[in-house]
């Protein structure tokens, strides 16, 4: 998936990937896609739930071995 902005959360554990996502999403424009790279498996469930709570659009998670890439579109 193509993203406009990407943040590296490798090595960080809950709640830091979500905290960093919340910080970054404030900086980008509506309609842009944010990619969150994480090796915390919790992100698979956490990101769609975070989107549900904040109203941003969840686009999906891609897994490559131990690495996860979650995509969020700012609404």
């Amino acid at each position: 998936m193509k993203a406009d902005v990407s943040i590296d959360c490798l090595g960080l554990f809950c709640p830091m990937p979500i905290v960093k996502t919340a910080e970054k999403i404030k900086e980008i424009d509506a309609g842009k896609v944010l990619e969150v790279i994480s090796d915390d498996e919790g992100i698979v469930d956490d990101m769609p739930n975070w989107c549900k709570m904040t109203g941003h659009e969840f686009l999906g998670v891609e897994q490559n071995e131990d690495e996860f890439k979650a995509y969020v579109k700012k609404v």
Binding site: P15, A22, W50, M53, T54
Partner: peptide
């Protein structure tokens, strides 16, 4: 603090 920061990050 995990709950507090997680909730704040989720707009609560």
């Amino acid at each position: 603090f995990t709950i507090a920061t997680g909730a704040a990050a989720s707009g609560m």
